[in-house]
Design a protein around this nucleic acid. Structure first.
Ligand SMILES: [Mn+2]
Ligand SMILES: [Mn+2]
Ligand SMILES: [Mn+2]
Ligand SMILES: [Mn+2]
Lengths: 247, 247
DNA sequence: ACGTGGTGTTAGAGAGACCAAACAAAACCG
DNA sequence: CGGTTTTGTTTGGTCTCTCTAACACCACGT
């Protein structure tokens, strides 16, 4: 587990309260009401009040009258810390992994409580590197073009061997379905879209995984593979979209 | 919030229980005892029992007698799903971000419950791309050499403009300390090690951030900057290690 | 001045995790 | 076999987070 809430006294929920108070302060010039917080966090006001009380006791906000909430200096420091991590992650998810904005936002706000400061630091170093190195930019774009295939994308102009479109047209690729029972291989790439790909990943069929074709059903359709000491059944179509390096 | 526990009925804690049961089954050939689970998760046996009861009710394990715990088929599917995400993240943290193994492990097990399937998918695509594209490998290594500086590393042989060692020797770089009061700039890189860097990142001083030198103390040492609508004090030494693009 | 609606607080309740300690059942052993 | 140790369960308690619903303000308009 290990909770990386930077301030050991802060739970994820309290961090999120601080974060939204910070944002609302920016918007409303420090005039943050319980109602706004409840709205922003999508909880009922009755949940906010006791949380404010606790943040007040921790000295992170000033909880005035029955009106405004204001971050103390310590509270603002904590809030900016959470906000900074949030932004680092959002940027990584959206700018680097090319995730849709809403998902990037969601995942950032969930993961910001879970990652060590070192991890955030490494991501920032990655940004720095990508920006400074002209090749870094090129490469990122190529990754997006080649790998995050949308229906209407042309094959990678750089002749990148990993380009899924180019790959699909190749014949020298071997899939799980081409293995002979008992033969082992290393997963290189998972083709296929959406649900199928998702299912394969969920099962643990990931790049570099050691895999063995255990047996094939008499009809030829369900294939059984061994993976991490377990046997799994794959439909032939699924197996065919897992490219492997036989050995 | 939005919990990406793939099975909506599963909390992070239950996912972790499934995950450790899966691992222990691999080790002990399916003979998993409550005691082992408690040990592995670092909780007391008294916490494990009721959790097993719930997993049993959910049809994810068979909770036999007072002896062994065994995953059902549905439970194994769920467990492998968690395990797959865990491995994807661990690999990203360790192999790509070059995080120490223990931190990679920790963060993977925390973040595995927080990220959307799409995000995991994108990371896998990144692995595929990096492996397939020979340049990808080169580039990753250069990132590690250039950017994750250890004390005894030589400057980047590729003359990468982002190389921190090369950067430190340059004089055409401007830092926050070189701005004139009222001048604005965009953060390009944060130099400095450990605690100082950490403090800067925590304050929200991140690559691409818009920043303004608000004023300088008479003594010249504390500098005040504006960032995201807030004013922060920086010691001169800290400010000097933030490289900016003035404008 | 009075009522009404919008806000904030409080009390009560439930779910999820966890622990400590009392208790029960096996296993182990002399 | 009978006692001791190991292992598992149960009970009672704490904490956090949330909700609902009753209640307290306050502000505004008539
Ligand atoms: Mn959050
Ligand atoms: Mn957030
Ligand atoms: Mn976990
Ligand atoms: Mn895990």
């Amino acid at each position: 587990m290990t909770d990386h809430t930077l301030d050991p006294t802060l739970t994820p929920a309290l961090e999120d309260y601080l974060e939204t108070i910070l944002r609302l302060s920016r918007r409303f010039e420090g005039l943050v009401r319980v109602r706004d917080i409840a709205l922003a966090r999508d909880v009922k006001p009755g949940s906010v009040s006791p949380a404010m009380k606790r943040l007040d006791e921790l000295g992170l906000i000033e909880y005035e009258r029955r009106e405004h909430v204001r971050l103390t200096e310590r509270g603002a420091v904590a809030a900016r810390r959470v906000d900074a991590r949030h932004r680092v992650l959002r940027r990584f998810f959206e700018g680097f992994l090319a995730l849709p904005a809403d998902l990037a936002e969601q995942d950032a706000c969930a993961a910001e409580h879970a990652l060590s400061p070192e991890t955030i630091d490494r991501l920032v170093r990655l940004f720095e590197y990508m920006e400074m190195c002209p090749e870094g930019q090129d490469h990122l774009q190529r990754f997006h073009r080649c790998s995050l295939v949308h229906a209407d994308v042309a094959p990678c102009p750089n002749d990148c061997p990993g380009d899924p479109i180019a790959l699909a047209e190749r014949t020298d690729q071997m899939s799980i379905a081409d293995l002979t029972p008992g033969q082992r291989g290393r997963v290189r790439q998972i083709e296929g879209q959406g649900a199928i790909r998702q299912r394969l990943l969920d099962m643990g069929i990931l790049p570099d995984a050691e895999i063995e074709l255990a047996r094939v059903a008499p009809a030829g359709d369900p294939l059984w593979i061994r993976l991490q000491g377990f046997e799994l059944a794959l439909r032939r179509a699924e197996a065919a979209s897992v490219k492997v390096q036989a050995r």
